[in-house]
């Protein structure tokens, strides 16, 4: 069953901070989720291959040609970021 430690672990892996209260609330919900999906254990899947995708394999590969039309101007590349400098994305005084 899912524990507080499990929640901390997945929160760490998915880069989400959680307060103690968040963890408590999440625990409840995730335990519920686990219970709900437990029914899958009843399905007989002996010899069944996983279904990774419902579409057929790719019809064609992309030809190795530069697509100038799709390349963005640098202004467009940087338009949505909070900090930029000399055409780079910028992070302030990162300590790691």
């Amino acid at each position: 069953m899912i524990s507080k430690e499990d929640i901390k672990k997945v929160a760490d892996l998915s880069m989400i901070n959680l307060s103690e209260q968040d963890i408590k609330c999440m625990e409840e919900k995730l335990v519920e989720s686990i219970q709900r999906v437990e029914i899958l254990g009843q399905a007989n899947t002996d010899g069944v291959e996983p279904l990774l995708q419902v579409h057929e394999p790719i019809e064609e590969f992309r030809k190795d040609l530069v697509e100038v039309d799709y390349i963005l101007d640098r202004e467009e590349v940087l338009v949505n970021t909070k900090e930029q400098q000399y055409g780079y994305f910028k992070l302030l005084n990162i300590m790691d």
Binding site: R62, V66, Y70, I71, G87
Partner: peptide
């Protein structure tokens, strides 16, 4: 070009100019 898009795979270039 790059692995998954048609951006040029040229080495270097001005920062963030080979992006889509």
């Amino acid at each position: 070009t790059k692995m998954f898009c048609g951006c040029t795979n040229e080495f270097g270039g001005d920062a963030n100019t080979h992006c889509c």
